[in-house]
Design a protein around this nucleic acid. Structure first.
Lengths: 222, 222
DNA sequence: GTCTATAGCACGATAGAC
DNA sequence: GTCTATCGTGCTATAGAC
């Protein structure tokens, strides 16, 4: 019976979430009211708040959903490609694809995520599991590739690539071009550049500066 | 009579603004309500909205004030220093100093600024004058220094430095160390590194990649 | 444990009278 | 140019049904 009750609750939880996401998508975050979500889902406002402590919590759930979808979408890319550039390009494009339906209201999401006090901040302690999972994807990008790099840079690279993705997301939320063409172009051009930049570390003079940069990042993370 | 009325209106406008800024400083943006501002200023809420279309508009005014203060604080640095590293370091530290009183609730500000639809976004069209003014400061940093660079990179550098500052601000709002020690360390270590990185462009193999990066940034800005 | 119904607070923002 | 009155919002609280 506990299972039945839990299953029912889980059903309601999902109903509320999917309704909220649909309304967010259709009319944006700001214009979607908790009253409207509850009404559209056929539940009471109190019930919506029973499952999601605030409107932001619904956003948090959306964030988690996105990441799950990204991890799935990335599998065929990592299975098929063995070179660094197509692997990274594919992973970044996969993110664009799963996020596409929410591009219009992603700005609002970004707004909440940028608050350092918010648990939704990608740098927050609460986001650590999600962040680690995301970094793990980039570690797979690096480890499964043909990239030849000094060990310390190689171990730091997944987090640097995560930062790169944060930058691309920042660009993406501001991108108003049709089908986010400009963001796609950015990825297609930036990834080969990053690749060339990494290969430059073979030059001794460059190597020293890169080592210092890695050292700075390490010390700053602590 | 028209002058009298206008003068009175201007007085009210300034009264509302200064009250709002004081309350923002004292208790943060989120906890300062329009009712409290109006009440403290001795006017009605409707009157506050007559002069400032929204709470964000009051924030915009606060933002402008900060930037004016930074431009002033930067003068002695640019007058005294002639080398790139101390010039840039001084300008960045000056920003930390004028911003220090607002560090505690800067997160709230950041939250609003990160919304791409908000006029407060540093990338928005409405922020262009403020952004241009800020880039101009970095142009003075570059132009008044001993830095030797290829012309195209040199002309692009002020905007790159502005981006660097955005990154430092991002770090700063998340910095919980006493007296933002970690942000200060970041500046002191990152600036000499940036200097060394820039000087690497003399190496031919590096030069090509840097040219491509500059080209990418140019194409992406358009 | 799950859910409804409803009343109510404080907020940002607006309308219309003066 | 200023006020009062009011709206719709996010969110909380409570009392109770099943």
């Amino acid at each position: 019976m506990t299972d039945g009750a839990t299953a029912k609750g889980e059903q309601t939880r999902e109903l509320i979430l999917s309704t909220a996401l649909r309304l967010f998508r259709e009319q944006g975050y700001g214009k979607t009211t908790m009253r409207a979500i509850a009404n559209e889902a056929g539940v009471s406002v109190g019930n919506a708040y029973y499952y999601y402590g605030s409107k932001d919590h619904l956003m948090q759930a959306y964030y988690d959903l996105l990441q799950d979808q990204h991890r799935e979408a990335v599998e065929p890319v990592l299975a098929a490609e063995k070179s660094f550039v197509p692997r990274l390009t594919g992973v970044l494009h996969a993110w664009l694809e799963v996020s596409a339906p929410y591009h219009e209201f992603a700005g609002t999401f970004f707004k909440t995520a940028a608050d350092p006090r918010s648990p939704l901040s990608p740098f927050s302690e609460e986001s650590r599991p999600a962040r680690d999972a995301s970094v793990a994807v980039f570690r797979r990008v690096v480890d499964g590739s043909d990239l030849k790099l000094p060990a310390d840079l190689r171990s730091e690279l997944p987090e640097l690539l995560w930062l790169l993705q944060m930058g691309i997301v920042l660009f993406w939320v501001h991108d108003r071009s049709e089908n986010v063409r400009r963001t796609r172009t950015l990825i297609d051009r930036a990834v080969p550049l990053a690749d060339r930049l990494l290969r430059l570390t073979r030059i001794p003079g460059v190597r020293g500066v890169v080592n210092d940069i890695v050292g700075l990042i390490r010390s700053v993370k602590a």
